[in-house]
């Protein structure tokens, strides 16, 4: 048992890592988009757990809330909305160039791995307390992030709000049915 206790962090990491990768592979191989979506949700949760291991409590929560709660619901919603046909497992769910695409992806991965082997990360000691400290007082990760987010990172923060506005406009522009305009080329169920 000592082994488990002493190496608890390592064991946890490897378990989570394996599960994360398994979830990722699931997204690739499940024929049904719903299954793929559930697999993705699983990956998101595992990644959130990894965030917690890295002392990023707020991010872990955001990951579950935004991805698991928000984006995933959106995905499922659209899957349901678009067409029942697409829900059925597809006959050809892979693209025409699938084998070549895997080769391409793996090739790029190998090259990145090469850099990883010969590369050097910046030196650091991994002190979680600094991530919870605001002005010398250790209060918590959320407060610490809030403190920098609303001061130093105010500009990108505001811009991100505009990004969301644009996304909203985009969704409305694409989603709204416009009277008076006709679809050229036929098709569709409008």
């Amino acid at each position: 048992m000592d082994f488990l206790v002493v190496n608890f962090a390592e064991i946890l990491f490897y378990c989570l890592a394996v599960l994360t990768v398994a979830g990722g592979i699931g997204v690739l191989v499940f024929k049904s988009p719903v299954h793929a979506a559930l697999s993705l949700l699983f990956t998101f949760v595992m990644v959130a757990a990894l965030f917690l291991l890295l002392h990023a409590e707020l991010l872990g929560a955001v990951q579950v809330l935004v991805y698991g709660g928000g984006i995933m619901v959106l995905f499922l919603f659209v899957i349901m909305l678009v067409n029942v046909k697409t829900l059925a497992p597809e006959q050809a769910f892979l693209s025409r160039l699938a084998p070549l695409a895997v080769v391409a992806g793996v090739l790029l991965g190998v090259l990145i791995a090469f850099a990883l082997i010969f590369g050097v990360l910046v030196s650091g000691h991994g002190d979680g307390t600094a991530l919870r400290t605001v002005g010398g007082a250790e209060i918590g990760n959320t407060e610490a992030i809030g403190a920098v987010l609303y001061t130093t990172y105010l500009v990108p923060f505001e811009i991100v709000s505009v990004v969301l506005l644009v996304a909203m406009i985009g969704a409305i522009v694409f989603g709204r049915r416009s009277a008076g305009l006709e679809i050229e080329g036929g098709g569709g169920e409008s």
């Binding site: 025409r96 160039l97 090259l111 990145i112």
Partner: peptide, 22 residues
Amino acid sequence: GFAQGYAMVMVFGAALLLGIFF
């Protein structure tokens, strides 16, 4: 003509450039 074919061109191109770069 289709997006994934383009993605592949990009990834192969990136791999080639990266290889030369290294």
